[in-house]
Amino acid sequence: MTNPNHTAHEPDFDAVTGQSTTGHSWDGIRELNTPLPRWWLWTFYITILWSIGYWLVYPAWPLISSHTTGLFGYSSRAAVALEVQALEQRRDQQAAGLKTASLEEIKASPELLRVALARGKASFAENCVGCHGQGGTGAPSYPNLTDDDWVWGGGLKDIQATIQNGIRWTQNADTRMGEMLAFGRQGMLKKDEIEQVVDFVRSLAKLEPAKGANLAAGKALYETNCASCHGEAGKGNREVGAPDLTDAIWLYGSSREAMIESVHNGRAGIMPAWASRLDPVTIKALTVYVHSLGGGQ
């Protein structure tokens, strides 16, 4: 393309910098040819040199099946692994006290307690909240760990044993065993008998029985069928995991229908044994944490 203003053959100089221009001019606007500032150029050259050093020191060039590893064999993956290792080491140091101390000693020492609660809380969030809920609030069929009602005992040792061996977890020889029979399904009690016994139990717990319920018949049925585990007064038995029937807490619901279902079909909630999955220190920490939620005995 030709340009009438094009005057390439005459050397032209920029008055401000004294540098020669490209000689191109369009509508009176000249194209300058001022070189880059020297400091900028030198910075640019230095970055090039720097990048060569970088290639040598760090992993940089892909090869056919691998890559150059750099002079010091650095890799970000190994660096992360080192950091994780250092973190675990530090955690182990903190937990060293937990290893030897008894549960009572941990509870009594503010320093150990702090470590145990922190570790217990983290482990609880990882392993327990699926069933017992955030903060151990439980759900129907899954016990609330913050209240003072314990089916298998709420002392430090009891909680530790429950976590370690589980409940009705048959792979573990020491697991907690106890059975609420399916009185209706297995034909031990007839439908109206179940209703009578449920109405009697409701009266024990100061819940409303059905209108005109035969409490005397229910009491008789209770004494023959239920008292062996739940006790004459309905206070329960922690040895076999028989809940207290006189309190305000009902794991499977306190409606008449829910109670009839419990007697008809039985109940057998399962908790896994954690001894095979968690190390003893973590189980200790979990024990102390659960004990601290408010219900510990």
């Binding site: 903060g135 609330n144 913050t146 209240d147 305000a248």
Partner: peptide, 8 residues
């Protein structure tokens, strides 16, 4: 969590 706890 929980806002309140019912006791025995």
């Amino acid at each position: 969590t929980p806002l309140f706890t019912t006791l025995k």
